[in-house]
Design a protein around this nucleic acid. Structure first.
Length: 370
DNA sequence: GACTATGCGTGTCCGT
DNA sequence: ACGGACACGC
């Protein structure tokens, strides 16, 4: 007998441990036991994308400049990394997890939520099911993962983080607020460096303190969605686990690059702009999609970041549909003297690739895929 | 939490 | 529609 309205939700947050490094170790077992990072180019401007726990023991962290990581840990082993291998490994692992339930939402290359509400569980216990899953992935793929088990996504996510590495942590229904209260505010998804800084200014360090804070005082300093923030700090979250639509299109596609040294010459920047645009539009075409908005991004030496976008009268898909606009946006921002650190291109307003064949187009045979 | 430094890609929200 | 800030993952 199943209750017609089963209120109790069971949500897993599954998170692969040091994922890029773990995949590299499968490919090259000699990397085991060593401080390893996967990360950017060795040109001095790269950053750490993933660090092994041995490297973390030296203070090496994700997003840390590679130069600094090497200073902290001179024997650091650096691996360039291959997105493609990670994508394949990710697909394999989550394919296995999908056998447990199709109600699986992949949220990044190494993370997914599973909704096991009303599912049969190992020994009737969610915790044992999580352990089993962890064990299966280790046997099949030699990859470690951590699982947070809770009555909602938010708490499951915090729990998996707290259990890392190779952990399983279940927060029982009713215990959500108690579990979160002692944690630093940064542990709550949605509180990043900027919000944390403002809260610290109000002497709020823990999620318990955030729950207890006067909402009007918070409003004055944060401005936005304070009510939702406090609800989340109490562990309340009703967002559903939503399996991705197989045919879903991304909202935007972008590429950006940081130059080995800052560059100011227009000719150089336009060349790179065309390359970035080509890479971006190629991916758009792979998806058989079109885009309406083209956007460029510049970062100056002092890290000032500027973006400019323009929406086209008609959606496009070829490089040539976007390049003049992208070039115009770039030229409007440049004086040929300002050194530029980073250049980026983004296409947005993406839709299925139904487009009007140009009325007077010659030579190129009109494609007829719709 | 600052810093000899600070990548890449995607998404959301806010103010105008 | 646009520009920026912020957040998140690795």
């Amino acid at each position: 007998m199943t209750a017609p309205t089963e209120a109790r939700r069971v949500v897993f947050h599954v998170d692969l441990d040091a994922f890029f490094v773990a995949v590299e170790r499968v490919l090259d077992p000699s990397l085991h036991g060593k401080p390893v990072v996967v990360g950017g180019s060795p040109d001095g401007r790269g950053v750490v994308a993933a660090a092994s726990y041995e490297a973390r023991a030296f203070g090496v962290r994700s997003a840390m400049p590679m130069a600094r990581a090497v200073r902290l840990c001179p024997q650091l082993v650096r691996v360039r990394g291959s997105r493609d291998a990670y994508r394949r490994a990710s697909r394999a692992v989550f394919g296995l997890l999908r056998e447990l339930t199709p109600r699986l939402q992949k949220v990044s290359i190494d993370e997914a939520y599973l909704d096991l509400s009303g599912q049969p569980l190992v020994a009737g216990r969610a915790f044992d099911t999580a352990l089993r899953l962890q064990q299966q992935v280790r046997e099949r793929f030699r990859l470690d993962l951590s699982v947070g088990v809770a009555s909602n996504r938010l708490v499951a996510k915090v729990a998996s983080g707290a259990s890392k590495p190779v952990g399983v942590l279940e927060v029982l229904p009713g215990q959500e607020q108690r579990f979160l209260a002692p944690l630093p505010i940064r542990k709550l998804p949605g509180i990043g460096p900027a919000t944390a800084e403002r809260l610290h200014g109000l002497r709020i360090q823990t999620l318990g303190a955030l729950v207890d804070a006067d909402p009007r005082r918070l409003e004055a300093h944060l401005g936005r969605d304070v009510e939702g923030l406090q609800m989340r700090a109490r562990g309340i979250d009703t967002s559903p686990v939503r399996p991705a639509q197989p045919d879903a299109l991304p909202k935007s596609i972008s590429h950006e690059t940081t130059f080995p040294v800052d560059r100011s010459k227009l000719s150089y920047l336009e060349k790179r702009l065309a390359e970035l645009l080509h890479a971006t539009a190629s991916r758009l075409r792979e998806r058989e999609a079109v885009a309406r908005t083209v956007s460029i991004k510049l970062r100056l030496t002092d890290f000032t970041t500027l973006t400019r976008d323009r929406t086209l009268p008609h959606p496009g898909r070829e490089d040539a549909d976007f390049l003049p606009t992208a070039r115009q946006l770039l030229e409007d921002l440049l004086d040929g003297r300002t050194p530029i650190r980073l250049l980026g291109v983004k296409l947005a307003g993406i839709e299925r690739g139904a487009w009007q064949p140009a009325l007077f187009e010659e030579a190129k045979p009109a494609r007829t895929s719709d």
